[in-house]
Design a protein around this nucleic acid. Structure first.
Length: 186
DNA sequence: CGACCGATCGTCT
DNA sequence: GACGATCGGTCGA
């Protein structure tokens, strides 16, 4: 499952001349047209969801609750709308710039905990939807960091109670004990 | 602590 | 015209 493989990888953004990066510590899978929690459920295809139908390594960013941008990585072949939501990262480069972007005063676990905060801290917004993640604006990298299998945990996804039985699926993955991992499922 | 609530607007019906 | 893949602050126990 791609959501698991993304754990421990690094997301880097070069936006407005500023470089910021963070290590991915929490993700959620949105599993295509049969997943009631996915925007692409039932094959729904609109201007907003179109980037989900692009090939892997495309960004799907969308605006939620009137105030948050959520960043996803598209993970499958063209016309198969699978995506992984990045829910939390651990800040690496550009922490000062992330503080400015989020209006926070000092580094703590709230800086990049939760998908809205991740996008805000990294400077990602809906202009970046559809962007190729092999470009130098936003890309996924890795270093020699290696997660032990036993440190990876899974749970139901957050905030998708409306998805009926699909809300129970263990599609959320996170690094056990990491301070930047967001809330328990509600 | 946990529960509740307000902010705020693009997207789809 | 309703609602959401959220966050953070406040209130009461």
């Amino acid at each position: 499952m791609i959501a698991r493989e993304l754990l421990g990888k690094i997301i880097v953004t070069n936006i407005d001349g500023i470089t910021t990066s963070g290590r991915i510590v929490e993700t959620e899978t949105y599993n295509g047209i049969t997943d009631k929690a996915s925007h692409a459920y039932g094959g729904r295809r609109t201007n907003r969801t179109e980037p989900m139908y692009a090939r892997a390594a495309t960004a799907y960013v969308y605006f939620c609750y009137g105030m948050h941008h959520l960043f996803n990585v598209v993970t499958n072949e063209k016309d198969i709308p699978h995506a992984v939501l990045v829910r939390a990262v651990e800040p690496l480069e550009g922490i000062e710039d992330m503080l400015v972007r989020t209006g926070k005063k000092k580094l703590d676990f709230t800086l990049t905990k939760g998908p809205g905060n991740v996008a805000k801290a990294l400077g990602i917004n809906k202009l970046h939807t559809g962007l190729n993640l092999l470009s130098d604006t936003i890309f996924i990298g890795e270093d020699d960091y290696n997660i032990e299998e036993t440190k990876i945990a899974s749970s139901p996804r957050i905030g998708v109670a409306y998805a009926a039985e699909d809300a129970l699926l263990l599609y959320r993955f996170f690094i056990k004990g990491n301070l930047f991992v967001s809330a328990k499922p509600r």
